[in-house]
């Protein structure tokens, strides 16, 4: 795929995709653009609302049917479920790692393998999360292994 970036005095940033047909590659680019443009509506316990870029989220955790978004310095609540987060932002690197957690693969600093096909992920904020044995094969697949 040929990528061209044009700089110019334009009123608004614009992305044009030119292709014969929408093949897998183009659909991937489209989903990436669409999900990247979507902001995540989140709020704190005292109802302070914020619009987050999906890339800001390191991981999401479901606790007692509430979904929490963990960013580098703050924790926010969202109305989306883990399944919805994964489906909506999969192209941006969101990946399910256990029944109660979805991780942003771009928020991981390093990984460590453990016995029993378990993987420990150290996030950019130095927090550690575990990829469960059940989800480890899908996690490895996402990394292209």
């Amino acid at each position: 795929m040929k990528i061209t970036v044009e700089h110019g005095d334009v009123p608004e940033n614009e992305v044009i995709l030119r292709c014969r047909e929408l093949d897998g590659e183009m659909l991937h680019v489209l989903s990436l653009l669409r999900s990247g443009l979507q902001t995540l509506c989140a709020w704190t316990e005292d109802r302070q609302m914020v619009l987050l870029q999906p890339g800001e989220v390191l991981y999401a955790e479901s606790v007692e049917e509430r979904t929490w978004l963990y960013c580098e310095k703050a924790v926010w609540r969202t109305a989306l479920t883990l399944a919805e987060l994964e489906a909506r932002y999969e192209a941006l690197g969101f990946c399910r790692i256990s029944r109660s957690m979805v991780v942003n693969l771009h928020g991981i600093r390093r990984l460590k393998s453990y016995p029993g096909n378990r993987i420990e992920a150290t996030m950019r904020n130095d927090e550690r999360v575990l990829v469960s044995r059940r989800y480890a094969p899908f996690f490895r697949e996402r990394l292209g292994m």
């Binding site: 990436l32 941006l92 690197g93 693969l105 771009h106 991981i108 390093r110 990984l111 460590k112 393998s113 453990y114 016995p115 993987i119 490895r140 996402r142 990394l143 292209g144 292994m145």
Partner: peptide
């Protein structure tokens, strides 16, 4: 031998992670 195996797997995981992060 087990420790070596996990070290090798850890290295492979991190290589693939870096590759994934640079891809997008």
């Amino acid at each position: 031998a087990l420790w070596l195996e996990y070290q090798r797997d850890t290295k492979l995981l991190n290589q693939n992670l870096q590759h994934f992060q640079q891809e997008l």
